[in-house]
Design a protein around this nucleic acid. Structure first.
Lengths: 262, 262
DNA sequence: GGCGACTACTCGTCTAGAGGAGTTGTGCTA
DNA sequence: TAGCACAACTCCTCTAGACGAGTAGTCGCC
């Protein structure tokens, strides 16, 4: 290869499809470090020449790597090895009361702690009927309404998470929960001020490929899955007081939990 | 469509690529429930006829859906809407001491509780040098060796998880940890018998697309991401006594954690 | 020096074919 | 009736082109 990337030739005996063999070669170059983050993969034209195959065969190979999340194609520039930005921890004490008492919302505290610049975006507050699964989690009746707060979180300008919180209207009404700025300590602080002492949270985590609107909202590269996390907050008497439905770029997060051995 | 699936026509004005429009149509049919789990998507030939486009264009559209995890192609049979098998919870009390005292390993207890048939597979026990990140987590020196137990978990014969546990050799030596059957209550019970009272676990979760060997080992459908979970077990004095590195099909699991509000 | 046009290179989309291989049902044969 | 051969249908791989559109560097003009 003129670009000094030594790709092997095709194995004419193998019954592995040609485009897969080519994908294998490039993948191995990445795994061996011959191509690293941000490097450009040889162009389609070069690869066609090297392997002596049709363009569609090369494109199939590149498609494999892209859907594995190893590369990104940039129109007019080339195909590049994906960079894996430093990940951020979601510590399991992120909802500790002491943080609320210091007036910091979890996301802000956490991001600043990791040396990033947090920002929040697209805040929308509405009064609506909750989706059925949210209503179930909040133990609401068929006619009960909720306040929903949706927003998008960014670190250094890069979107990493979208979230929608649902709070029974009865609790949210007349508080700063209904306003874009939910005040010091965030909505959990407001809920506690209303007399509901928070007792525990339950988080349920799924992992899946993003839907189209999620790819847009989080500017996800192809082949990056998302965490879909639903957190329910319970008051001391066992009543659920909030459900937060969040979708996170799996690139940006390592989730961390501590479990007692009891 | 002869198959009674009413797909709209292409929008000749839209500047959205034809193959994307076609993917959109099929995706919407799935989302609206016109095509449900296990249903066959109209064949390439039918779609070519319906839309009046070339075969590669149809294949591109189907490729989009496949990489979104919505469909699976079966050679010689057709393209089918993926089924999402019932998911299983990983309750946050799965490592509670009471379970160990009842003699059940976490996986067995949990799966039977959910009405599934658990089995374990490919158990291999070796004495080796641990990978660097594992050594760090176990706070081992450069020459310390570990016992590694790798195995694969199945539910009703379907592989769902691979796991490798690393235990410092000093702890594992001479115990049932070195044998395929680690005895009642699993290796945590053995570690406690050796005098290390387990205090807490820390779990770190990433989500990513599977590597090739993981696709094979877990029989993953295309477009299914995996959870990569690393759990470290700490004794009461703060010493790490085990690290377990597991890769789970995101299809088979919803992870669930409970956090105190402290 | 600054700016715009041009050009070479990149990936994106699409066409129109080809042969291959796996699956399934039909219908004939033994 | 059991079993096998075959046909029809499916998706898989690959070729050889076409045009479009985004990017970036060069070069000449003002």
């Amino acid at each position: 290869m003129a670009e000094s990337l030594p790709l092997p030739d095709l194995d004419p005996i193998s019954d592995r499809a040609v485009f897969r063999q080519i994908a294998d070669h490039i993948r191995e170059a990445i795994e061996r470090g011959q191509l690293t983050e941000g490097d450009r993969v040889p162009s389609e034209a070069r690869l066609m020449q090297h392997y002596g195959v049709a363009r569609m065969t090369i494109r199939n190979a590149l498609q494999v790597l892209q859907s594995e999340g190893l590369t990104v194609a940039e129109h007019g520039r080339g195909v590049f090895v994906r960079s894996h930005p430093p990940v951020r921890r979601l510590a399991s004490d992120r909802f500790a009361r002491r943080h609320r008492e210091q007036g910091k919302a979890a996301f802000i505290a956490e991001t600043e702690g990791a040396g990033g610049k947090p920002s929040v975006d697209s805040i929308e507050i509405t009064e609506t009927m909750p989706p059925a699964d949210i209503a179930t989690r909040l133990q609401l009746g068929a006619k009960d309404r909720v306040a929903s707060r949706s927003r998008r979180y960014l670190i250094n300008g890069q979107p990493v998470e979208t979230a929608v919180s649902y709070v029974p209207l009865e609790i949210a009404k007349g508080t700063q929960i209904m306003e874009p700025d939910s005040g010091p300590g965030g909505i959990y602080a407001r809920i506690e001020e209303k007399g509901y002492r928070l007792d525990r949270f339950v988080e349920e985590i799924k992992s899946r490929m993003p839907l189209r609107h999620e790819i847009r909202a989080l500017k996800l590269a192809p082949g990056v899955p998302v965490f879909h996390l639903v957190r329910t907050a319970y008051a001391a008497d066992g009543t659920p007081v909030e459900v937060c439905d969040t979708v996170m770029s799996s690139d940006a997060y390592v989730l961390s939990y501590e479990l007692p051995a009891r």
